[in-house]
């Protein structure tokens, strides 16, 4: 088992109080598994991804544990986490386009980073060049400044850099969102290839685009308002979703062959609730077409079939 997350709770400290962006999340990612994390914008996907690698200074670990290969991660301790970052857990951040220092040549940046980790750039360089070639980048990008590369190229540099030390877990946050459709495919395929080659063992692919993650993920986990709504193998989520939220997300997808525009725009009526004062009970209640009395209580996240967990009173039994 690669990753185990248990009742993880993380909040943002703001002037107006705490935003409980992650409110009791538990799941596991097996060795070699690619898990897609989906949900509308603001559901806490990025918060989950960041929590596993680095809490920024506005984030606070409220509770819960994370273990990687059986070893607990000290996620609340920024310094102690440094031992695990890059080697054990790594991330392609949502802002990958601006993740590279604009005034440093990429090769120099990598050299500085490896040096800080006590590694030799000269010794690592051949492998680095091999991996760059794998994602279709020439060796010369190492002599370039980030501004000299296109967005897609920067994205791939970040992918190679983040996985350079073969981490057990990679969080890829919206890696395809800023790219055009054909590049999206290529990047998604590269993620699979990196997993197949063992450059990363487990992967969390965070995206708001189910149709993309469906092509590469083994499992899909649906988040809603800081909690898990549903988790199942990709096929099951797409063909037999049980949670009303998942059903609406899938329903909002363009069907194969159908014109994109009309259906995409409708989406799901309403928006996810704010997390400063989240509603009691099922958080989807205000938008749920099936809501009934019992939904005033919070539904537990339970296994309803093998490898299929749902948090909805209507889905169980």
């Amino acid at each position: 088992m690669t990753l185990q997350v248990d009742d993880l709770r993380v909040c943002y400290r703001t002037l107006m109080g705490e935003v409980r962006a992650l409110d009791g999340v538990s799941f596991t990612v097996a060795d070699g598994e690619i898990m897609g994390v989906v949900g509308e914008s603001g559901c806490g996907k990025s918060t989950l991804g960041k929590s596993l690698v680095r809490l920024d200074n506005r984030m606070k670990h409220v509770g819960g544990t994370v273990t990687v290969d059986g070893e607990p991660l000290p996620i609340a301790d920024d310094r102690a986490m440094n031992r695990f970052r890059f080697t054990s857990v790594s991330i392609i951040p949502q802002y990958a386009m601006s993740a590279l220092n604009p005034t440093r040549r990429i090769g120099r940046l990598v050299a500085d980073l490896l040096d800080a980790h006590g590694m030799s750039y000269a010794a690592t360089r051949p492998e680095l060049v091999r991996r760059l070639a794998l994602v279709g980048l020439p060796e010369t990008v190492l002599d370039s400044y980030p501004i000299e590369l296109s967005g897609g190229m920067k994205q791939r540099v970040v992918l190679v850099l983040s996985t350079l030390r073969d981490p057990a877990l990679l969080v890829a946050d919206e890696v395809t969102s800023a790219l055009d459709v054909s590049t999206q495919r290529a990047v998604a395929q590269t993620l699979v290839e990196f997993r197949d080659r063992g450059y990363v063992r487990g992967m969390l692919v965070v995206t708001h685009d189910i149709s993309l993650v469906y092509q590469i993920a083994d499992t899909i986990m649906v988040m809603y308002a800081g909690r898990l709504a549903e988790k199942a193998p990709s096929d099951v989520v797409v063909t037999e979703p049980l949670h009303p939220y998942t059903q609406l997300l899938i329903g909002a997808l363009p069907e194969v062959g159908a014109r994109f525009s009309e259906r995409r725009l409708t989406g799901i009526p309403g928006r996810p609730p704010g997390l400063r004062n989240p509603p009691q009970g099922c958080r989807f209640r205000a938008r749920c077409p099936l809501a009934f009395d019992k939904c005033a209580e919070q539904p537990p996240f339970v296994e309803v079939a093998e490898n299929h967990q749902v948090a909805c009173w209507k889905a169980g039994s």
């Binding site: 690698v53 680095r54 920024d56 986490m81 440094n82 031992r83 695990f84 970052r85 890059f86 080697t87 790594s90 991330i91 951040p93 802002y95 601006s98 993740a99 590279l100 220092n101 604009p102 500085d112 980073l113 800080a116 980790h117 970040v158 850099l161 983040s162």
Partner: peptide
């Protein structure tokens, strides 16, 4: 962003 990314890659504060 580049500072956060470096921190996420475990770069020491010095760098």
């Amino acid at each position: 962003d580049y500072a956060s990314y470096l921190a996420a890659l475990g770069a020491p504060r010095r760098l």
